[in-house]
């Protein structure tokens, strides 16, 4: 389960909307033990594409340091799908870097953004519950 505060949710969706027409991406800082995402780190998309994304490695480095300095970790990544549903593509599955992470998809296909979260391990995709929390 991924616990997502309203503020993290809103920052994530806003970053994805601002990134249109390209895919947008970012990282989530939080507590790996509880699956609580407490910080949204919007990052650049080095791929500058509507179909693929690459988290800017320097943004990743600074997000990782900030999370660690606050006693947290990077616990997942989010990115937008501009014209498809919020489900990991074969590319997402093939390139998933860490089986302990939460993989959040923000679909902007419909008028209302759709946020869903997955675990990806050994090529297997499992959807998980997203619990919205206060904050």
């Amino acid at each position: 389960m991924l616990a997502l505060s309203r503020s993290v949710h809103d920052q994530m969706v806003a970053h994805c909307l601002v990134g249109l027409p390209e895919e947008a991406c970012g990282l989530l800082g939080g507590d790996p033990a509880t699956g609580e995402a407490l910080t949204c780190y919007p990052t650049g998309n080095l791929a500058s594409s509507a179909k693929v994304y690459t988290v800017d490695p320097r943004d990743h480095l600074f997000a990782d340091r900030d999370a660690e300095a606050n006693g947290r970790s990077i616990i997942g990544v989010f990115h937008s799908h501009t014209h498809t549903e919020a489900y990991p593509s074969p590319t997402d599955v093939a390139q998933a870097p860490d089986p302990s992470w939460h993989y959040v998809l923000v679909s902007l296909r419909d008028t209302e953004p759709v946020v869903r979260s997955y675990r990806i391990a050994d090529g297997l995709v499992t959807e998980e519950t997203v619990r919205m929390t206060a904050g």
């Binding site: 179909k51 690459t54 490695p57 990743h60 990115h79 501009t82 498809t84 990991p88 870097p97 860490d98």
Partner: peptide
Amino acid sequence: LSILPAVAGGAVGV
């Protein structure tokens, strides 16, 4: 030294 995974993906091919 810091080691981090490259994080990439996308909807390509869909």
